[in-house]
């Protein structure tokens, strides 16, 4: 049972409407970017240009989710870099595996 002793009297801070507005604004941006992806999926011809646009928009959305929703931008700089910098390895992974995939394509077809 919660006794008076361990029942903390946490002070409720009133809503900061500006902060909440910013959250909904970010949500709006994410939904608009997704709608643009849909629009392009049905209007532009399939090809490398379209794929590059899709990947660019996706990374843009990822940036919003990580910085605004996960508040990574507000963390201490060393924490921020220890999350972001290791992702450089993915660049190598993508280049190596795409090369591998297209070589398999050349041999197979």
């Amino acid at each position: 049972m919660a006794t008076n002793e361990n029942k903390s009297s946490l002070e409720v801070i009133p809503r900061n409407e500006e902060k909440i507005k910013k959250i909904w604004k970010t949500a709006g941006i994410l939904l608009v970017l997704t709608s643009i992806e849909f629009l392009f999926a049905f209007t532009l011809p399939r090809g490398l240009l379209l794929y590059a646009i899709f990947i660019g928009l996706t990374i843009w959305k990822a940036k919003y989710i990580m910085m605004e929703f996960m508040h990574l931008g507000e963390e201490a700089k060393p924490l921020f870099y220890s999350i972001i910098v290791p992702l450089i390895f993915l660049v190598w992974l993508v280049i190596a595996l795409m090369r591998e995939g297209s070589d398999i394509f050349m041999i197979r077809w």
Binding site: L90, L93, V94, L97, M98, E100, G101, S102, I104, F105, R108
Partner: peptide, 14 residues
């Protein structure tokens, strides 16, 4: 990322 890159690699091989 490994899953999705593997998807991309297999996809370009077809």
């Amino acid at each position: 990322a490994a899953f999705l890159t593997a998807y991309a690699a297999i996809r370009v091989s077809y």
